[in-house]
Amino acid sequence: MAAKPKLYYFRGRGRMESIRWLLAAAGVEFEEEFLEKREQYEKLEKDGHLLFGQVPLVEMDGMMLTQTRAILSYLAAKYNLYGKDLKERLRIDMYVDGTLDLLTMIAQARFKSPEEKEENFALIVKKAKTRYLQVFEKILKDHGEDFLVGNKFSWADVQLIEAILMVEELSASVLSDFPLLKAFKTRISDISTIKKFLQPGSQRKPPPDQHYVDVVRHILQF
């Protein structure tokens, strides 16, 4: 029996959360080692595991995987969530890159001062509605299918539901003008692996608090 993937990251969302989502969506159990001290991070560097001196780090299939986008691409391909051909893969990549931009904005805003944070969150919600959600609403309307690409559950769907739920944490009514995305959210949330990941006690992480921010700042020294 193959060993479970092992995730090395802070005890919070950050760049690892999309990796957790994708593994969970594929029904893959994984272990986590949380970085809580600078020494843990330095040891990973000293052992040569951090290719560019960065986490996330995922240990699986006899490899130490780094760089978020590369890890996600590998997982999507490995677990058949990456389309049936190059054209579908291209569409998945485009949609994923868009939602990654949105997720990155939210993650970075958590490290701002309280005043800047609120201002950033308001701007993110505005951008989410005009630049991202509007686009995905049109995609669903234009092809009339249940999923974003090829009428089959894919990485693009996983990352969009993650992004929707994160934006809803900032504004509960953000989907009020997007009926197809509302239905998409309900539909995807009811997929068994996703439903399990959304249950209390799963390895899904809560919104970052000040303790998480302080630990990350201490370990990464910024």
Rank of each mutant, 00 (worst) to 15 (best):
F52D: 01
G48I: 05
I161A: 08
E29G: 03
L22V: 09
F52V: 06
T99M: 15
V174A: 05
G144E: 07
L165H: 12
G48F: 06
I164T: 04
G53N: 03
K129Y: 03
R11Q: 14
A122N: 10
K84N: 13
Y212L: 08
K37A: 12
I19D: 12
I188L: 00
L90W: 11
K87M: 13
T68Q: 15
V135L: 05
P179E: 08
S18E: 01
L198C: 03
A163N: 02
E32F: 08
K87N: 14
V55C: 01
A109S: 15
M105Y: 11
D209H: 07
S154G: 11
K195G: 01
A172C: 09
A24N: 03
V158R: 06
P5E: 08
Y8P: 07
V135F: 04
E162T: 05
L72P: 03
D142I: 02
F136G: 00
Q108T: 13
S154V: 10
Q108H: 13
K46M: 09
R217L: 11
K195F: 01
P179Y: 08
K205R: 15
P114Y: 05
E36Y: 06
F184W: 08
D157H: 02
P179C: 07
A122E: 11
G62K: 01
S73C: 12
L133E: 00
H143R: 04
N80Q: 14
I71Q: 02
Y41M: 15
G48N: 06
K43I: 09
T193Q: 12
L175D: 03
R187C: 04
P206M: 11
E88P: 07
L220D: 02
D61I: 05
L22H: 05
L57H: 00
L123E: 13
E31V: 08
S173T: 14
V158L: 11
W155Q: 14
D85E: 10
T99I: 15
S189D: 03
H49T: 11
A172D: 14
